[in-house]
């Protein structure tokens, strides 16, 4: 067994072109429109003192409208929407806001509809991983979170998902 390489902060100087134009729009892939309900997800990312964080990287990974992941580990992946990659990247603006256009994911066996999030930033020595849900329910990942904190993983409205790295209403992050 080999030891997995140690993580490090992404630092402040990743190149501006690290975030390609359109990388936060998952509704179109190679010029073709994905199936399903197009939605927008947005939110603000803050640190302990409430300061909004600019130029922070958010990446997401999710199933398509039918709840299928575009990956061979999914037994149904042959039926995945060919026009949906399921991955996107955004950077936060000067007000700490990120935004994605995507497709509302379908449920999978044993899992409620959800979107996996990853946060990378200067001063974050390791990638932080969390999961956004559309509603409360019996999802095993959501149930793993202490009951009092679960509501922090459920998007508000159409669809707002704020991420607090530390402090009041701190977003639950997962130890994987």
């Amino acid at each position: 067994m080999m030891i997995p390489t140690g993580e490090a902060t992404i630092g402040p100087f990743f190149p501006p072109r690290y975030v390609d134009a359109g990388a936060n729009d998952l509704t179109v892939f190679e010029g073709r429109k994905a199936k399903g309900e197009a939605i927008e997800i947005h939110g603000r990312v803050m640190q302990e003192d409430g300061t909004a964080l600019e130029n922070l990287i958010v990446e997401i990974w999710q199933a398509d409208a039918g709840g299928i992941f575009r990956h061979p580990a999914d037994p149904r992946h042959a039926q995945a929407d060919p026009n949906f990659l399921g991955w996107g990247r955004a950077a936060t603006d000067a007000q700490g806001n990120y935004r994605f256009k995507t497709i509302r994911p379908g449920a999978q066996e044993g899992r409620a509809p959800h979107i996996n999030f990853m946060v990378m930033f200067s001063g974050l020595m390791r990638i932080l991983k969390t999961t956004m849900f559309f509603e409360d329910g019996k999802d095993p990942v959501l149930m793993a979170v202490p009951a009092a904190r679960r509501s922090l993983l459920i998007a508000k409205g159409n669809y707002e998902f704020n991420i607090r790295l530390r402090g009041e209403n701190e977003t639950p992050f997962f130890d994987d």
Partner: peptide
């Protein structure tokens, strides 16, 4: 680093297909 790393313990979960 102390402003940006979670204070709460990270939540353990069993990885799923997702």
């Amino acid at each position: 680093t102390p402003l940006r790393s979670p204070k709460e313990p990270l939540v353990k979960r069993a990885p799923t297909l997702s």
